[in-house]
């Protein structure tokens, strides 16, 4: 097994394609192909993307109830390269809804908060996490945590990975990053989840300088690479020695951006597993993987050949 992915708050993803979507209006979906149901949550999405690239992974996290069982079955059907090791909880797994409007080029996302967990569930998952760490070369920890879970669970997970010498890749929102920062537990690769707001360590990022200096702050507590999404289709890659801005040379349909962050992380992990240790190359490959995943609106993941094709469609410039 190569990778362990952690999704503490997974979801069943429901994608609905509605052209000309408007609030406060009745919409009839034209065919069943325009409504899809798939396993989701950031870590699970990374497992799915890695499977498409031929990389086996263990997916762990919390699942519960009817939704949890559907998610597990769908995940098992998706690929034999994904081994499941979930902790089952009392409450129901959540459902995430994305309304994709290809006519207006918009995505409207509604993510529910998910279930509460019991104290014993935390102890249960940490022990299984420790066991799985002995079998993998990298760990991906992404997404939100259950509403009542202790905020320091990610701190514990990153520290356990570091103790075992397993590099950690994370994509999470700012409140979690603040806790990691305060506890000196930054993962090797950190990609702040900016979908709700461009805020890092509690500060709003506006200028390119803001992005670079916030990224450098993350490196001070242990990160080797910080990937900061810079206004939709560009990213700022912050490394110890320099910072770069990377962007596409082709036009991107913004309604095709669903799940690209997870493909980005999967791309970086893939490159690391191929033996690449230059963080800039790892960041570039992740960006191109994400770029390749924008070719369709559906959460359809790119193959290695498709990623290679997109290697010609980006530009990178040193910014600091």
């Amino acid at each position: 097994m190569k990778v362990l992915t952690v999704t503490l708050n997974p979801a069943l993803d429901r994608e609905i394609f509605i052209d000309g979507f408007k609030v406060d209006k009745l919409h009839r979906v034209s065919s069943k192909e325009k409504m899809t149901l798939s396993p989701g949550g950031k870590g699970i999405n990374v497992s799915l993307a890695l499977a498409k690239l031929g990389i086996p992974s263990i997916a762990t996290g919390f699942l519960g109830g009817y939704m949890g069982r559907i998610l597990l079955e769908e995940l098992r059907k998706a690929s034999n390269l994904i081994t499941t090791n979930f902790v089952f909880i009392k409450e129901e797994t959540r459902e995430n809804i994305a309304i994709i409007d290809e006519k207006s080029h918009t995505i409207t996302e509604i993510n529910s908060p998910g279930p509460e967990i019991e104290e014993k569930d935390i102890e249960h998952i940490l022990r299984r996490y420790a066991m799985s760490l002995t079998r993998v070369e990298a760990v991906v920890i992404s997404g939100s945590i259950p509403v009542n879970a202790p905020r320091d669970i990610y701190v514990k997970m990153v520290k356990m990975a570091k103790e075992k010498g397993v590099p950690a890749f994370m994509e999470v929102r700012d409140p979690y990053i603040i806790t990691l920062y305060e506890n000196d537990a930054m993962p090797d690769v950190i990609k702040p989840d900016f979908r709700a707001s461009h805020t890092l360590l509690g500060k709003d990022l506006k200028t390119l300088e803001d992005f670079v200096s916030a990224g450098k702050e993350l490196l001070k507590t242990g990160a080797k690479l910080a990937v900061l999404s810079y206004f939709i289709d560009k990213d700022v890659l912050v490394l110890d020695e320099a910072s770069y801005i990377i962007g596409p040379t082709i036009e991107i349909d913004y309604s095709h951006l669903l799940g690209t962050g997870d493909t980005y992380v999967a791309g970086m992990v893939y490159k690391y597993l191929q033996g690449e240790r230059d963080m800039l190359e790892i960041g570039k490959f992740g960006y191109v993987a994400a770029l390749a995943s924008t070719r369709t609106a559906e959460k359809e993941l790119p193959s290695l050949d498709e990623i290679e094709t997109f290697m010609q469609y980006f530009e990178i410039e040193r910014v600091g």
Partner: peptide, 15 residues
């Protein structure tokens, strides 16, 4: 089935 759900020897019957 590629699932590695398991218990440890020192976990309880209740679990």
């Amino acid at each position: 089935v590629f699932d590695i759900s398991a218990v440890f020897e020192d976990e309880t019957v209740e679990r």
